[in-house]
Design a protein around this nucleic acid. Structure first.
Lengths: 116, 116
DNA sequence: TTGACGCATACCAATATGGGAATATGATGG
DNA sequence: CCATCATATTCCCATATTGGTATGCGTCAA
């Protein structure tokens, strides 16, 4: 019951994709299933390293595994990214087009003043 | 140099938004600027807690500050979320519509086999 | 059964948290 | 200059990584 640390990487997709190498793995898997060793080689990481990242991705459901002989083929299951996309999308109007930085700034100010 | 730990939360937007409370702060700031204490109160966190999260958000450029008298008004600067949205958007075809889980799975297999 | 191969785990080191409490810092109003 | 309000920082703690390296384990081929 003492202090807390950062949330586990396995807690949700947001945490899982915070790690660059895991994002690389997901991106690579868009091209199709891959066995661990191949992933490791293509991404320049150690085999244990790849396995560990894959474990995290598996625990949040972003990849699934399929045993084929000695190999374990990892495949993408991007459904878990949808909530992330939607959450971030909720900010789209704040970065797109006519709403440049200064505009947004001023807008916010106006809104703020009106509220009081 | 020795082992590494998790990337800093201040390293990029992906890491910054991995923390739920920081996401809450960003979401709240869409309604307009807020002073620290108000943010803390509305989100049920301590003042130091809010300040610390705001510091992280500031360091990755997702919020900006403006001093107004004794207060410091924090405002949203969502531009940094755009790359995140785009990266995640790159997976859209894998979760949307006709591409349900099993379909995607089979598709991947086919693509894989063709590639060899 | 025995190797060999592919992968997952265990263990260790070094580090980055996130929360609470206490305290320092800053700006404002008298 | 001082008391005060609003924030930022500092400490301390327990925890959760990420990256090696070594090793366990399951499957397949002889």
């Amino acid at each position: 019951m003492g202090a807390m640390a950062r949330a586990a990487t396995t807690s949700d997709a947001f945490n899982a994709i915070a790690e660059p190498q895991r994002r690389d793995i997901l991106a690579l898997l868009r091209a199709g299933e891959r066995p661990v060793t191949e992933l490791a080689r293509e991404l320049g990481m150690s085999q244990p390293g790849a396995s560990k990242h894959l474990r995290v991705l598996r625990e949040v459901g972003l990849v699934r595994v399929r045993g084929v002989g000695k190999q374990r083929l990892y495949g993408l299951d991007a459904r878990g990214l949808r909530p992330v996309h939607e959450w971030v999308g909720g900010f789209e109007r704040f970065w797109s087009g006519s709403f440049d930085r200064l505009d947004a700034y001023v807008q916010d100010l106006k809104q703020e003043r009106q509220g009081e």
